[in-house]
Amino acid sequence: MTVSAPLRRRRRTLTIGRPSPIVYAFLAVVMVASVFPLYWSFLIGSGDSSTVNDPNMSWLPGGNFLANASSVIGNESVNFWKSLGNSVIVSTVVSASVVFFSTLAGYSFAKLRFRAKKGLLVFVIATTAVPTQLGVVPLFIAMSAFGWTGTLGAVIVPALVSAFGVFWMTQYISQALPDELVEAGRIDGANMFQTFWYIGLPSARPAAAMLALFTFITTWTNFFWPFIVLNATNPTLPVSLATLQANYFVDYSIVLAGVLLATLPLIALFVLAGRQLVAGIMQGAVKG
């Protein structure tokens, strides 16, 4: 299996000592590939409208990023601050809710015994196999019947629980939380919810943190459904930024400046949450 190639060089143990420079070189390559699109976006976003079609485009940023960015913020039809606020609300509520309900359900599927458990879990997973493209029409009918179209509720409510999250937490908890711990909790006289709260939840923390981050990002960048169900007076960022492309000719320096502006909060989140996340992973490992 190809997996072994880079690992072969690693002679030392996993837990003792530092990895070799080759490992860092490998990671550096991965990092360059990961950063490239953002850097490239910055090259275009800091240039002018001709940069994107310029065959001799410079690999150093131009000087227009601030000007481009402020023209995005100043553009009335983008409604930048309002849509930024909406994106923050939607992403925060959705990720908090997804994490809580997914952990609860995942814990239940992974560690509790009940009738039809397997079948129900398979059902949960199977729901993710339904192609989403067609669902748009009936979902819109439903949202319209509830009178939610045009409101953030129409974006938030369908996303409050995710089958993906439930599946992920189920798998993680079944691996990371030893059955004995759960049983010990029960023997100590804790009720079901206490067992979940004091034993299940802490053990799931690393995966929950990751699920929160993933859900936040996915919700933040989601375009299609918000585009269909929200409108210009109350949009999320990707929806309002799309109006920058509403022209016969699209000025990509402005569009990408907007995209980068919308990405900045996510990068800030990385910086703030990154340490927490890694700490979370380690902590989980120790507990496990």
Partner: peptide, 25 residues
């Protein structure tokens, strides 16, 4: 008047047909 601007004719078409199909919006 509130103007909703879709980026492309394609996006606008998808949006319009979806809502015609749904009967509202």
């Amino acid at each position: 008047v509130v103007q909703n601007k879709a980026a492309t004719s394609d996006a606008a078409q998808t949006n319009m047909f979806t809502k015609l199909a749904a009967g509202s919006g």
